[in-house]
Amino acid sequence: MTAADILDLGRNVLGDGLVFLGAFATLVGAIGLLRLPDFYTRAHAGGVTDTAGAIGILVGLAILSPDLLTALKLLIVLVVALFASPTSCHALARAAFRSGIRPALDGDRPPPPQPGE
């Protein structure tokens, strides 16, 4: 085995491992979406898919990609996704809170009131 072969093997193992971890995180996010009790806790499960799932799969694919330009494009997709997903998550939570969905909190405490009231 030459040095290039070993490098290639290492790259494949690392890339496959990251894609596997990303797929697993996405699965955990999907399970959480079904298992957790209310809207707000379910949004946390969505966060796992948005971050660990996207980072694992896209960085893994960038490592596995045959040339540098494809890897660069995948990383641009990752950066855009990491800017867009918290914004959409916040918009969703804000819309839910504004339309009167109140979270079930630990120990049945009420959610804190508006700062102005």
Binding site: Y40, A43, H44, G47, V48, D50, T51, A52, L82, F83, S85, P86, T87, C89, H90, A93, R94, F97, P103, P112, Q114, P115, G116
Partner: peptide, 24 residues
Amino acid sequence: YGNSITLTPGTFTVLAEGDRFLVH
């Protein structure tokens, strides 16, 4: 800061009013 809070799973910003965030 608000996006970083939302991006770490387990915490997210629900409302952002002035210089305060309502965090779940």
